[in-house]
Nucleic acid binder design. Structure first.
Length: 421
RNA sequence: GUGAGCGUAGUUCAAUGGUUAGAGCACUGGAUUGUGGUUCCAGUUGUUGGGGGUUCGAGUCCCCUCGCUCACCCCA
């Protein structure tokens, strides 16, 4: 260990093989499933004007108040690394007048997000999300489709033991009244609530419903429930969603205590959690945001979306099944400099035919080259030495069953094609 | 931002305050000439995170600092 070391920044990690294959698997599964529902990829920038985020996420949220990576650029503009994806997509939707295209417009994105937080299990300063957004459909059917898509995606990835929660947090018409009811309910018992909840009473009373402290859990028994205070529009929408979910056979718990952090959500919110994660147990979460496009200066446009937390999905995947990682088709072991030259030529030819070929180091013994071939889980080893150069026939060995034989150097491709078929 | 735990070889971990800080894994070579996985032998690897203090003597005790981990807060 040397005195000074370059290290990745706190909360930022290198993603390496073999993990990277899990990442690719998840990304591929998501793309495939999303495309079945007509969602198309877009790639907004990772950096935006700071106010893109402050306006949408909410001035008073922790994300905006203390978690954003905000800089001043050389033109004295305040810019920020995106802490989440929706704001950028909405900005893009409005800026590029995408509402002029036939509705609904459905997009997905994938990439890194940045929040300056203390890292812990399942939480990082640079973390990856895959998210989707559907614009221009106000009805509950699209909500059900989006939730169904999320479910299909997670199933395709292979996640088990996950729980779906849904809720409706109302709209600007009915939520204020509910919020007031809730504040009244807790007002009498502030002494019994934890310090955090006393603060929440003023900042965001809905969060008290989410508190883990025992006495707060006791206190909120009998508290008014959002779902009992929805206006007619929100109630109809929520009932519609629930009936569609039932129609699709998606088991989903209605959880009136589920609160979402971002200010822009209206009506439907949902969350997928897993018991097999740490305290940060949300695998994916999302909801409807019917006012956001309007707030960005676009036409009133209903919208709904969700984001999946890549690291958390990978964590679950890593600990569940065993995984097959890619391995070389052929390892060429070489003995002597002439054989090494021939091996290089053969490797080049085979790679041109689409085979993954690894070359042994002529400086190492055959035993060591064989060992390396085995460690790489190579399917075949080809051995080239003086004998093979003279005869024009190389030795092959199949590592899985130790079978071996000879093949003409001119028939290697056919040999491999025949073996793999 | 708050709290707790932990920093020893590339890695996983040992070492009652007492010689020259050890072992597994990994890596390289070998065990009848050119054959992997299991076995055996040999070799390579360290300012014990950094700094200060206590002590005849510190990997071990104390203080500071840096880093990692988990939890709170918040959130994917």
């Amino acid at each position: 260990m040397s005195f000074f070391q370059y290290k990745a920044l706190k909360g930022m990690q290198d993603i390496l093989p073999p993990d990277i294959y899990l990442w690719q698997k998840v990304e591929t599964a998501a793309r495939e499933v999303f495309s079945l529902y007509g969602f198309q990829e877009i790639r907004p920038p990772v950096v935006e004007s700071t106010n893109v985020f402050t306006r949408s996420i909410g001035e008073n949220t922790d994300i905006v108040e203390k978690e954003m990576y905000t800089f001043t650029d050389k033109g004295d503009r305040s810019i920020s690394l995106r802490p989440e994806g929706t704001a950028s997509v909405v900005r893009c939707y409005v800026e590029k007048n995408l509402h002029t295209l036939p509705s609904p417009q459905k997009f997905y994105y994938a990439g890194p997000m940045f929040r300056y937080e203390r890292p812990q299990s399942g939480r990082f300063r640079q973390f990856y999300q895959i998210g989707v957004e559907a614009f221009g459909d106000a009805g509950p059917r699209i909500d059900a489709e989006v939730i169904s898509m999320l479910r299909h995606c997670l199933l395709r990835i292979g996640l088990k033991d996950i729980t779906f929660n849904v809720n409706s947090i109302g709209c600007p018409e009915c939520r204020p009244a509910y919020r007031e009811k809730l504040t009244e309910f807790f007002a009498g018992g502030l002494d019994s609530l934890c310090p955090d909840c006393n603060r929440r009473q003023h900042t965001n009373p809905l969060r008290i419903l989410d508190c883990k402290v025992d006495r707060c859990v006791d206190m909120r028994k009998g508290a008014p429930r959002v779902t009992d205070y929805l206006c007619n529009g929100c109630r109809t929408h929520f009932n519609g969603l629930l009936s569609f979910l039932e129609l699709l056979g998606i088991s989903c718990t209605v959880n009136p205590d589920m609160v979402r952090g971002l200010d822009y959500y209206t009506r439907t919110t949902f969350e997928v959690t897993s018991e097999n994660l740490g305290a940060q147990n949300a695998v994916a979460a999302g909801g409807r945001y019917d006012r956001l496009v309007d707030e960005f200066g676009g036409p009133e446009t209903p919208a709904i979306g969700f984001a999946m937390g890549m690291e958390r999905i990978i964590e679950l995947l890593r600990n569940s099944a065993s995984h097959d990682f890619p391995a070389p088709d052929v390892f060429i072991a070489v003995i002597g400099d002439l054989a090494a030259r021939e091996g290089l030529v053969i490797a080049d030819r085979l790679r041109g035919k689409g085979f993954w070929v690894e070359l042994g180091d002529v400086g190492n013994s055959l035993k060591s080259q064989m060992r390396r071939a085995d460690r790489l889980s190579s399917k075949y080893v080809f051995i080239i030495g003086d004998d093979e150069l003279n005869s024009g026939r190389l030795k092959w060995k199949k590592l899985s069953d130790s079978s071996q034989g000879e093949v003409s150097m001119f028939e290697i491709t056919d040999f491999l094609l025949k073996q793999s078929s």
